[in-house]
Amino acid sequence: MKNFFGILFLLSLLIGIPISSNSAEKVEYLKTDWSFKGLFGKFDRGSLQRGYQVYTEVCSSCHSMKYLSYRNLAEKGGPEFTTQQAKTIAASFEVVDGPNADGEMFTRPGKLSDKFVMPYENVKAAQAANGGAYPPDMSVLVKARAGGVDYIYSLLQGYEDPPAGMNLDDGVYYNKYMYGNKIKMSNQLSDGLIEYADGTNSTVEQMSKDVTTFLMWAAEPHLESRHQMGFKAIIYLIILTILVYFSMKRIWSRIETKV
């Protein structure tokens, strides 16, 4: 039996190898301690709320988040704004609705049930406004990049002068962590760029961390309940496994063969 589970363990490790080595990147990402990692990982509410502020004040002028709704901001496991705060946030956006009785579209203040308002009407419009590059939708961006949160966090801080001999076209910037090092988004963050509602000092590092935390939640809104449920499920399975193990011993003791 020992042999069996030993081999099984090795096998499960082997599955992991091609995947992890496949996404091998040459650069080391910047590290920071994420509160949502680990068995009991949870989001830092303050960071999520600040991250939302960075998103609205900086990112949202180009990047959409089309799968999120304003109601999500007040939901459990997220930034947990109060419902009233979320309503105020929603109402600060103009939402296109309609058609009305005359068959015309009209705008009205946003409601909790509305999806996040998009900066551009469609992909083409976004490309036209951004020199042909489409600013990706950020709803699941963290899960759509191999390096995940570490990659986004590093990228935001990875702007440097290009190495000597590298020619960059207009509207192309050098970023240490970008695939191919060329990125069409210019450096958006600078120290003290925004004034955090909670008074936190808005360094580039702080803003990168906050907005990345916010993006992680946006991509994985049920992360907290997943961690909580997972812990309970695994503890439960272990208890049942132990019970079944002893039941099995008891049953097999009726005949002389060992299990």
Partner: peptide, 13 residues
């Protein structure tokens, strides 16, 4: 008791 407990815990799951 062992069997009852196993059944009960299993049923909960």
């Amino acid at each position: 008791f062992l069997f009852t407990a196993t059944y009960a815990v299993g049923a909960v799951g």
